[in-house]
Design a protein around this nucleic acid. Structure first.
Length: 380
DNA sequence: AACACGGGGGG
DNA sequence: CCCCCAGTGTT
């Protein structure tokens, strides 16, 4: 009986990796589960080029899981700012505390235990177990799903449970037999999806690259690589308007800590009014007083309005999220004196100390564009 | 099963 | 400008 693709896949992939895989990245070749874990979380939803800048900085600031567990969440969020998906940072912090309190500061080595930790799903658990412990555990991120969907011409949407379960089962069958091959195999799978079996320009459609699986790949054999995996049409994201207050008093700016479940959860941002759907044509134009009342609902607005002068319409910023598009109208205000703040989520931040706070990327860019922030003020 | 959650790259 | 990309947690 001849060998099938399933039998040969892992060795062919490892051979491909020896010639074309990415190497020399700072998180590669490590067996320290902490270092592996941080890199895997950071690499979720974030490109290698970005992680290349931020991973060494993070590891220098939080060199061990114990240091991370002992840090204040605001320090972790400040270090994470600009990477997006801030629940990752909150889960990272939470998970570090779990590892310290439940496992004495040592990560468990089996995928099932890893998956019980905050922010670690099945795929990341597999990656950590494979890299740090040589466990024969599969990963199944979007790159791997794409590779398998093409190799085996798998029909149906990836969201479909049967399709997803089938992919996991396939990923398991394809694992190399030798546990010692798990790190290089897992790395090879990630690299192959990221650089050769890419979403839009796969190697099989390129003149420069020769795919080692071109004679095996069911999608390629029918010239349909781009048709796998099946894509689902998604609706256009709704649009919203809101107002934001840039209140200055002397050398300080009033910032508000965002609720942890919201967009930019846990970061410090400008006080903002309610979001209004742009399609809501009946809405009245808000007055400045309205904006204040919506932005600072716990404060006594009267004294604030009296203490404010030089109200000017600032820039209008568009920001796009996965499921929303937001237009932010900035109102620039000078407060004549520092007012007493009633809510704990409000704080006067000296401009020179802004770097200590995690700011949403568009707010950071806004403040950089204003001359009131000097180079270095936003660096932590 | 569907949705929420940011930011960056490429056309 | 628009489109594409992407794990985990929550509901």
């Amino acid at each position: 009986m001849s060998k099938t693709l399933i039998d040969l896949f892992s060795q062919k992939l490892i051979t491909w990796h020896s010639r074309h895989g990415r190497s020399g990245l700072p998180w590669q070749g490590k067996r320290d589960p902490y270092a592996v874990w941080v890199s895997e979380i950071m690499l979720q939803q974030t490109q290698v080029a970005t992680v290349l800048e931020r991973y060494p900085r993070f590891m220098k600031r939080f060199p061990t899981v114990k240091k991370l567990a002992a840090a204040h969440i605001d320090e972790v969020l400040a270090e994470w700012a600009g990477l997006g998906y801030y629940s990752r940072a909150r889960n990272l912090h939470n998970c570090a505390q779990q590892v310290v309190s439940e496992f004495g500061g040592r990560f468990p080595s089996d995928p099932d235990s890893l998956e019980k930790l905050k922010g670690i799903g099945r795929s990341t658990a597999g990656a950590i177990a494979a890299f740090a412990f040589h466990a024969r555990a599969p990963i199944l991120d979007a790159n791997v799903k794409r590779i398998l969907a093409r190799l085996f011409a798998i029909e149906g949407a990836l969201q479909n449970k049967l399709v997803n379960d089938g992919l996991w089962s396939l990923a398991d069958k394809l694992l190399p037999k030798k546990p010692s091959d798990m790190p290089v195999y897992t790395q090879a799978l990630m690299d192959f999806g990221a650089t050769w079996c890419t979403s839009r320009k796969p190697a099989c459609l390129s003149n420069e690259k020769k795919c080692p699986f071109e004679k095996d790949c069911q999608a390629n054999l029918i010239n349909q690589a781009l048709s796998f995996p099946q894509k689902i049409m998604k609706a256009k994201s709704p649009e919203f308007d809101c107002n934001m207050l840039l209140i200055r008093s002397g050398n300080s700016i009033l910032l508000q800590k965002r609720p942890s479940r919201a967009i930019w959860g846990g970061l410090w941002s400008l006080p903002e009014s309610n979001w209004v759907a742009k399609s809501d044509k009946k809405r009245k134009l808000p007055t400045f007083k309205n904006i204040f009342e919506e932005s600072l609902p716990n404060e006594n607005v009267g004294p604030w309005l009296k203490a404010c002068k030089d109200v000017t319409l600032g820039s209008r910023i568009k920001h796009v999220f996965t499921h929303r598009r937001l237009w932010m109208q900035i109102w620039e205000v000078t407060a004549s004196r520092n007012l007493e703040l009633k809510s704990e989520d409000l704080r006067w931040i000296p401009i020179r100390q802004l770097g200590r706070y995690g700011l949403p990327q568009p707010i950071k860019i806004l403040l950089q564009g204003l001359n009131l922030v000097r180079d270095g003020d936003l660096k932590n």
